[in-house]
């Protein structure tokens, strides 16, 4: 079995009495977009800091391409690009100067640097603002440049820490497009967010973090499968015979609520709905009210942690 592109093994990080990360383990395969979903304070940024060589773990190990990641390892840093949660740009430099500066720090110079800078400016939609100082940019433009700076040295692993916080929809779409494009070119990405929709839209696998722990880690469908769907309905007339037949529906559990509201909990909502309709037709009953609730990440998070994602 080949080693994963990124391996995080039993990583813990303690700040004095505070345990910021508690034995977190997961793998990321090459070419994958891995999402880390969790509320503020869940430990996502600490984890990314460890993966990007900014911090050392208190215990555990991170490996990239089978090689241990350590703050003192300068070579491995060239493989990693990080988009910090806070904007990390020199506001008195132009967009082009920011990109060139960080490119030069990674040893890229001359025509190659100029070529890369041009390409990145085009990709993030800031070609016409190349020579404007960053302080004149809107929040969304700064976010895009923040992403561009992390790409200038051509990393193989890109770590994005809440890259869309406080941006306008246009810039958010630009960032999404860029993430997809980069992934399409084979880049591996770790994307943290507390926006469920973003993670759902971009990531092939998702780790759910809360209070420093990795509560779950899987593909989206498999995460959703851990929760039942719910069909709420009223029928007229609700005869005892109908009630008995509803209880016998396969892979479904009938609950009765107040006001003759019935609730079917089922692992496959679509299949259960087809069965329900067929039964009602056979019994000559009419559907007076119907409400379907399918599982989503929000509910998965609530189920796993006992609290809302945006608490």
């Amino acid at each position: 079995m080949t080693a994963a592109f990124l391996e995080v093994r039993e990583v813990s990080k303690r700040y004095g009495p505070t345990l910021a990360l508690d034995r977190v383990s997961f793998d990321v395969q090459e070419g994958e977009v891995f999402g880390l979903l969790g509320p503020n304070g869940a430990g996502k940024t600490t984890l990314l800091s460890i993966v990007s060589c900014l911090l050392g773990p208190t215990s555990g190990e991170v490996r990239l391409l089978g090689r241990p990641v350590a703050p003192s390892d300068r070579q491995i840093r060239c493989l990693i690009g990080i988009v910090p949660q806070e904007l990390a740009l020199y506001s008195e430099l132009t967009a082009q100067e920011n990109l060139c500066f960080f490119g030069e720090l990674y040893g890229i110079r001359g025509p190659e640097l100029r070529r890369r800078v041009r390409r990145i400016l085009a990709a993030i939609g800031l070609e016409d603002k190349a020579n404007d100082r960053v302080r004149t940019f809107s929040g969304g433009m700064k976010r895009r440049l923040n992403l561009g700076v992390a790409l200038v040295h051509g990393p193989r692993l890109l770590l994005l820490d809440e890259p869309t916080v406080g941006v306008d929809p246009q810039s958010r779409n630009r960032i999404f497009e860029e993430v997809r494009r980069l992934n399409g070119e084979g880049m591996t990405l770790v994307y943290t967010s507390h926006y469920m929709e973003e993670v759902q839209a971009l990531c092939s696998r998702i780790g759910i973090m809360d209070r420093g722990r990795l509560a779950a880690c899987d593909t989206l469908p498999r995460l959703l499968q851990t929760l039942p769907g719910t069909i709420r309905f009223r029928v007229t007339p609700l005869t005892p015979a109908l009630r008995e037949r509803l209880k016998e529906l396969p892979d479904a559990l009938l609950c009765e609520r107040e006001g003759q509201l019935l609730e079917l909990e089922c692992s496959d909502v679509k299949l259960a709905l087809v069965e329900l309709m067929r039964l009602l037709q056979q019994e000559g009953a009419a559907l007076a009210h119907l409400d379907i609730e399918e599982p989503n990440l929000e509910r998965v998070f609530l189920h796993l942690t006992g609290r809302q994602l945006r608490d």
Partner: peptide, 14 residues
């Protein structure tokens, strides 16, 4: 404050 020190640390600098 502006976070660029963090970027410098992430770069291959001593």
């Amino acid at each position: 404050r502006q976070g660029t020190l963090r970027r410098l640390q992430a770069a291959p600098l001593t």
